[in-house]
């Protein structure tokens, strides 16, 4: 059992099982839609977790990449009649390039300084999206044309559930592969000691850049997926609050835990829906629960519970 849990593929397999199982359990389209939103958030969170949890570099601007991905599938088909799938790829490419260019100077910074610099970057993107109304529809957002694949119009909660679920499993699989590779070891090493990693030959700046680009691409693809599912985009997808939400999901679920990324995303997407029944106390309760979780399970939900299980069942 423990060997099974420690296996490299444990997280993507568990996530795949959950996606399949929930498809049969969830009672209505409303729930399938919420689940699809969880899968999409979790995808972005896995990418951010590679950066934060494994490589130890914070980003408070990842909603910027998410927003660019979302607007790519809105703007490119509308303006240049690009196929939405190509638009998604173009968005990912552009985000990767931007991350590459911005990452070089930014990732030299550490800790709080890096946090503020990425924060600034995210705000810049959000402002650009909100201000360029001729292209993006400004603060009101813009519609996204429907996705058609080989003449088949993709629509319906259940279809999107499966597409986003598959995307999430793919993202989780790529992430665990990376973590278990020489690149992953280099990233985890520079998290713990940059100087020792460098002495071992790791080009620290290069590896930080690689993981920053990868995490930007994850966010972009997730953003594109959300836009396609919703059929609409607003600048909110790129804004600062969303960046904070993504970081919160990473920390809540567990830094350096791919499965934790899903847990963190699920909590922050589902809980507000559940708590709406408490009307005025919704935000109060949400904040309180987050605080309690972090105080009790201080390394995040999944790593803390895993450690607990290890200790009780030797």
């Amino acid at each position: 059992m423990r060997a099974l849990l420690a296996h490299r593929l444990a997280a993507p397999v568990a996530i795949a099982l959950i996606v399949v199982a929930l498809a049969f359990i969830l009672p209505s389209n409303f729930y399938l839609r919420v689940a699809a939103l969880v899968w999409i958030s979790a995808l972005a969170v896995i990418g951010l977790n590679l950066l934060m949890g494994f490589a130890g570099q914070v980003s408070l601007g990842h909603a910027g990449f998410f927003g660019l991905g979302a607007y790519a599938v809105a703007v490119l088909p509308a303006q240049f009649s690009l196929h939405p799938l190509l638009a998604l790829l173009a968005g990912a490419l552009v985000c990767g390039l931007i991350a590459f260019v911005v990452g070089r100077p930014i990732l030299r910074l550490k800790g709080h300084y890096l946090a503020v610099a990425t924060l600034g970057f995210g705000i810049l993107i959000a402002m650009a999206i909100a201000n360029e109304s001729w292209l993006t529809g400004g603060p009101d957002g813009m519609p996204v044309s429907r996705l058609t694949l080989f003449g088949w119009r993709v629509r319906g909660a259940s279809t999107w559930y499966w597409i986003t679920g598959a995307l999430l499993v793919l993202g989780a699989w790529l992430a665990v592969n990376l973590v278990a590779s020489p690149t992953g070891r280099a990233l985890r090493a520079l998290h713990d000691s940059e100087v020792a990693a460098r002495v071992a030959g790791v080009d620290v700046a290069h590896y930080k850049l690689i993981v920053f680009v990868i995490s930007a691409v994850y966010a972009s693809v997730a953003g594109s997926a959300l836009a396609l599912v919703n059929g609409f985009v607003t600048p909110d997808s790129a804004n600062f609050i969303h960046s904070i939400e993504l970081v919160t999901m990473v920390v809540l679920g567990g830094m350096g835990s791919v499965f934790g990324s899903l847990v963190g995303a699920a909590i922050l997407v589902v809980l507000p829906q559940v708590l709406t029944t408490f009307h005025d106390y919704e935000h109060l309760l949400l904040g309180l629960m987050m605080m309690v979780i972090m105080i009790v399970l201080r390394s995040g939900i999944v790593p803390s519970l895993a450690a607990l299980i290890r200790r009780t069942r030797p």
């Binding site: 280099a186 020792a196 071992a200 790791v202």
Partner: peptide, 17 residues
């Protein structure tokens, strides 16, 4: 300057980088 979040084996594997 040890990689504390990694196992002993992984620490040495980083040396193979």
């Amino acid at each position: 300057q040890v990689f504390f979040r990694m196992t002993a084996l992984e620490n040495v594997m980083v040396g193979r980088h």
